[in-house]
Design a protein around this nucleic acid. Structure first.
Length: 300
DNA sequence: CTAATTTGACCCAC
DNA sequence: GTGGGTCAAATTAG
């Protein structure tokens, strides 16, 4: 049902990202380092293929211009960079897109409708939305929503480009996937106000090492309108504020990996990563992973 | 008054 | 030339 286009050359990046995400901890590392390293590597792999790099949109100029010449100039500048294929034909090189069919339109972001079109051979009009923070934060994310023909209650939603804004409003800072506070998981949040209060949760985390099954990294996909979350089982002494997360992350990436501003909110890439995972082949028992979700939404 | 939506026109890849 | 994506003025909603 869902589909996604990974940019060219991405398969190896994707597999690297997946590998990194499903890698089990090794005893020689402290777990928080591993978690952060996996985050860092995954984000790095994703940033390395992000074709937002070819986007040349002059954000600050868009609104200020009124005359036709300016508009043309901007339109030209905004053109998606084109490349020729082997036959010499121009192919449109698009930034990241993801399509899904869902009955829930609300995805937690704030969208502004900017267009509506009759689509040939389609019963319903297609609606065009851009991120509300296009101008104040330069967020280039857009989405298209079209009612499906055969299932009127469902909508085909196509997302274009990543959110670079810092307003994922309806996403809770901490989401309990399968609420079991006897579990050993710890929450990590890189959101600005996602500081975990150790006093609140610490007592719920018995010794991490006592349950080997909790060493595993697990994933869980929530409902259609929520970002995909993934879970780590981590020792209870790991409490990371946004500030320390940033510095730790920076430390882990100091060897050359860069957290690009193009991967502020890698929700949809992660979504696709997880879609490709064959859970049956993962070397850990998901049935034992009743973990508290980690919101990986990472904003620089 | 400000922000959001509507809608016709413009632009460009195909 | 056409279809689809975007712009921006006009209109509507809060």
């Amino acid at each position: 049902m869902d589909s996604c286009s990974w940019p060219e050359g991405s398969p190896s990046c994707r597999s690297k990202a997946i590998k990194e995400l499903i890698q089990l901890p090794e005893s020689s590392y402290c777990v928080e380092d591993q978690a952060l390293e996996m985050f860092g590597n995954t984000l790095s792999f994703m940033s390395s293929y992000s074709v937002n790099k070819v986007s040349k949109i002059p954000i600050n100029n868009i609104r200020s211009s009124n005359c036709l010449d300016d508009r043309k100039a901007i339109a030209k500048d905004k053109m998606v960079k084109t490349v020729k294929n082997s036959r010499g034909c121009y192919i449109r090189k698009r930034s990241w897109t993801s399509t899904k069919v869902t009955s829930l339109i609300d995805d937690g972001h704030v969208w502004r409708k900017y267009g509506q079109k009759e689509i040939i051979n389609a019963k319903h009009k297609r609606n065009y939305y851009r991120c509300t923070h296009k101008f104040d934060q330069g967020c280039q994310a857009t989405k298209q929503v079209q009612q499906t023909e055969h299932e009127p209650t469902k909508y085909k939603i196509t997302y274009n480009r990543h959110h670079t804004c810092n307003n994922f409003l309806s996403t809770p800072q901490m989401i309990y996937d399968s609420i079991n506070l006897e579990d050993t998981s710890i929450l990590l949040s890189f959101e600005s106000n996602g500081l975990v209060d150790k006093e609140q949760v610490g007592s719920h985390f018995p010794s991490y090492m006592h349950d080997k099954s909790k060493e595993a990294l697990s994933f869980s996909e929530l409902t259609d309108n929520q970002p995909l979350l993934f879970d780590f089982s981590l020792p209870s002494n790991l409490i990371v504020s946004d500030h320390s997360a940033h510095s730790l992350m920076s430390t882990r990436l100091a060897h050359g990996d860069v957290i690009s501003k193009e991967v502020y909110s890698p929700i949809f890439e992660m979504d696709q990563i997880f879609e490709t995972i064959d859970y049956s082949e993962n070397p850990f028992d998901l049935a034992h992973c009743e973990l508290i979700s980690l919101n990986y939404s990472y904003n620089v």
